[in-house]
């Protein structure tokens, strides 16, 4: 039987397209989990640690997003997916959306008391 037509695996293309949103999801998961656990554990260290850590994680995520934004072709190489213009454009836009989301989410830490309930 002759070989079916080969093309790079679609997993690479999916990961490439979703790189931004995945970083966004990772960021949300990290800050939310950390915050929930820290506040559940309670104690003064939580109050002291929470805002700074969240800002730090947010900056790290934003940095990673900026990297994917600046070097999409590198990323395409790493993920071994064809760097089609369609994928590049869509991936870029998604990364911009994710970056907005990450910064917006993280900025809460600058304004709100770490573990208070507002009810």
């Amino acid at each position: 039987m002759n070989d079916p037509v080969r093309e790079p695996p679609i997993a690479g293309a999916i990961l490439f397209l979703l790189a931004g949103p995945i970083l966004w999801g990772g960021h949300l998961l990290a800050v939310y989990t950390f915050h929930a656990v820290a506040c559940a554990a309670g104690g003064p260290w939580a109050t002291a640690l929470v805002p700074g850590s969240i800002v730090l994680v947010t900056l790290a995520a934003a940095g990673a997003l900026l990297l994917t934004l600046s070097f999409p072709r590198k990323l395409a190489q790493v993920l071994r997916c064809a760097d089609q213009p369609f994928l590049i454009r869509a991936g870029r836009l998604l990364t911009v959306l994710s970056l907005t989301g990450v910064l917006w989410t993280g900025s809460g830490a600058l304004a709100l008391a770490p573990c208070a309930q507002f009810r």
Binding site: L28, H35, T105, G108, A113
Partner: peptide
């Protein structure tokens, strides 16, 4: 309204608007 700390709510409020 379930008693989750306000900062966590802010994360999701931001995402909802985004």
């Amino acid at each position: 309204t379930t008693g989750i700390p306000a900062l966590s709510l802010a994360f999701f409020s931001a995402a909802s608007m985004a």
